[in-house]
């Protein structure tokens, strides 16, 4: 049985991790490779880095961290943020990322999913979506949640998987930052219609939220940022609690 994956998510801007003041005592807390290695040693199963560098020119410099992370850590990691073309995807994979995550660019150009999947294999193409519930419907937003695409989330993930996405990251905008638990209704609906791994994102605030998610859905991965960054939850304690609740989880000995 596959272990459920615990996935810390790090935002990187201009090659530095932002909102990462949690690891006191480290010389360079904002270095993606130091934080990445730290999480990997603490038991993270995978890492996601979102490059939020605003300008296209700065992005190439920013992405140098990918090579350094690839050298330092020995767990899989995904890189996303601003990837628009097959060339952008090739660049990140060549630097050593195991997966890439595409969001807005896939909405603007669904064929990008198909082309990338055919070239690199579905296993490394992750479709990430931002979802907001409006009048009992789940709607896809793009550009960091700023633009309403009027796409139905359930239809969009089905299409994304048909085009070749090998994994989905589902971020609930209603739950994100609220720390009141994951959006179980949304995640359940999505899990039921696709046959690729689903990663839950948005809403983690306590260990019990992860247990609830594990008990109520068969979602494959649990992604969170601030609860790990600010040490509100340690990966170790989270994993031990999940294991006690009979959730399959990897604990390194």
């Amino acid at each position: 049985m596959l272990a459920r994956r615990i996935i810390p998510c790090l935002d990187v801007k201009d090659g530095r991790v932002v909102k990462g003041s949690q690891f006191e005592g480290l010389k360079d807390v904002n270095d993606p490779k130091i934080l990445g290695k730290r999480y990997s040693l603490e038991g993270a199963d995978e890492l996601v880095f979102y490059d939020i560098t605003a300008s296209h020119e700065k992005r190439e410099i920013s992405l140098q961290f990918v090579e350094e992370v690839a050298k330092e850590i020995n767990i899989p990691f995904c890189v996303g943020g601003g990837l628009k073309t097959l060339g952008d995807i090739a660049n990140v994979l060549n630097k050593g990322a195991d997966k890439v995550s595409i969001n807005s660019a896939a909405i603007d150009n669904p064929n990008l999913i198909k082309a990338a999947s055919q070239k690199y294999g579905a296993q490394c193409i992750v479709l990430s979506i931002d979802v907001k519930q409006e009048d009992n419907e789940f709607i896809v937003y793009k550009n960091g949640g700023r633009i309403n695409t009027h796409l139905n989330a359930i239809e969009w993930v089905k299409q994304g998987v048909r085009l070749g996405a090998g994994e989905l990251v589902i971020n609930s905008m209603n739950h994100d930052g609220m720390k009141q638990g994951f959006d179980i209704a949304l995640l359940k609906q999505i899990s039921e219609v696709v046959n690729v791994p689903v990663i839950a994102s948005g809403g983690a605030g306590a260990i019990s939220h992860f247990v609830d998610l594990a008990k109520q859905t068969d979602v494959d991965g649990y992604l969170a940022a601030s609860v790990f960054h600010y040490k509100e939850i340690t990966i170790n304690e989270l994993k031990e609690t999940l294991q006690q609740a009979n959730v399959p989880i990897r604990i390194e000995r």
Partner: peptide, 25 residues
């Protein structure tokens, strides 16, 4: 694909396994 962390079970003794334990992921 079978993608993710899964447990190893041992079929026979081998020196390759000397540093790991059964059910390691």
């Amino acid at each position: 694909p079978h993608m993710g962390w899964n447990k190893l079970f041992f079929a026979k003794e081998d020196t390759l396994l000397k540093y790991i334990q059964e059910e390691d992921y």
